[in-house]
Nucleic acid binder design. Structure first.
Lengths: 237, 237
DNA sequence: CTGGATCAGATTGTCGACAATTGTCCTTGC
DNA sequence: GCAAGGACAATTGTCGACAATCTGATCCAG
């Protein structure tokens, strides 16, 4: 639930099209509408209590974000996320978040760095207590990356990552009920990235972030390879 | 004009909304509609001979691509591109195209590599003849990057770069009538990137591509800095 | 003369109905 | 019995009209 910071438009958007866009996106990301489901416009319009006009606008925007697949004159389906797609996304994340970490090391304010350490302290505490493990994997881990992305102070980079990429990552996590496979290691890597940022070492921050994400991708590729078919477990990144 | 390969939807889209989307995008990118222009829906609807319905869908899609800026209940304006925005985009290109070059070195087929060399030979020939310089800067240079991006064989990466980023780069070029400032150096760098790809050296290809784009960005930053206000000249990347 | 509130005009947001296209099912011929 | 063709139904694409909201210009008060 603490995904509040990840929503794109204003929470109480004034226009109906924005409201239904937000609600539809949440229903897709959280798994209420499962991948492959065929969505009739009339059905959805009744579901959200709006006309087909605003609904169509929301559909087009979700289609741009790759959360919906539409075929003209045929219909709209919820995008089905293959593991191969997620691996592709991790390649993009490796490049983009590596750059974000580099820029964050150069551009983050002292207050932002302090906030980063507070977040890590919170994570460490929660992990020691084995408290709410789910939080760490979902919003917790994402929040760490989220702060570094914002720390880049590069609007284009932020919009791309938060607005175009992360929705699909979150969709994957909720869809497969992902459980972190190595939270302790991930936390250590997070801490080292924070150290590099605090030291204003951009190159090191980029290297560590890329390695961090690359390891998660390699884990996914191992799951994809034939022969290894364990239960749903996922990297923490 | 040889931008045919850069268009997003099918050229003869069946639905009216797609057609007006394509035409509107071209008018924005090519500078027919200049940045900051206020666009009335009724006016545009008459301009393209469609109703406001399909037009609004096109507007939403262009807004997602950051080519239009919309304020609810107020209106839509053509996105005004500051030099600072272009510099931000070049940071993203450095990260993304660096990764693309790495993947291209690993994934490109022999035929694709051959096509890359043919393109470079064509560029070299045109430059020797001082023939059509404009081609090299606009479509020519973009085509080189375009091929490497596609060579990554990563659908997510391709869609991001071609579908979300490059439109704004093209818009900038047409807007400022950019003239290459160092075509010879750029061609040499292109050739070295191709060599690394042919040698299947992913790390080297990424390094060279990042340096290539980074230099162009540094040139833009120099133009942005106070004191240097020469005429409109731009890097070739 | 300046500042703020009010009102008119225009523009955007929303809705319901009509037209066009697609997929399906039935019929028909071989 | 099977395949090809056609007609029907359902869904999407498109349109015009109505309602809600913002801009600006005018008018009034201080």
């Amino acid at each position: 639930m603490p995904d509040s910071a990840l929503k794109t438009p204003a929470p109480d958007s004034r226009t109906l099209a924005d409201q239904v866009f937000t609600r539809l996106q949440d229903d897709i990301v959280l798994g209420v509408l499962k991948p492959g489901t065929k969505l009739g416009e009339a059905e959805l319009a009744a579901r959200y209590g709006v006309s087909r006009g605003p609904l169509r606008e929301a559909i087009r925007r979700l289609e741009s974000r790759k959360l919906l697949e539409r075929i003209p004159h045929v219909g709209t389906r919820v995008a089905s996320l293959e593991l191969a797609d997620l691996i592709e996304i991790y390649r993009v994340r490796e490049a983009l978040e590596g750059m974000a970490a580099r820029l964050a090391a150069e551009q983050m304010t002292a207050a932002e760095v302090a906030g980063l350490w507070e977040l890590l302290a919170l994570h460490e505490q929660q992990q020691d207590l084995q408290d709410d493990v789910a939080y760490f994997q979902h919003a917790g881990d994402l929040d760490f990356h989220y702060r570094i992305i914002q720390g880049s102070h590069n609007r284009t980079l932020i919009d791309l990552l938060i607005g175009e990429i992360y929705h699909r990552v979150r969709m994957y996590r909720y869809q497969f009920s992902m459980t972190a496979n190595r939270p302790r290691k991930a936390l250590t890597e997070h801490r080292r990235i924070a150290e590099a940022i605090e030291a204003r070492d951009g190159e090191m921050a980029e290297l560590l972030m890329r390695r961090h994400i690359s390891r998660a991708r390699e884990y996914l590729e191992a799951r994809q390879a034939p022969g290894s078919s364990d239960t749903n477990r996922s990297p923490t990144t």
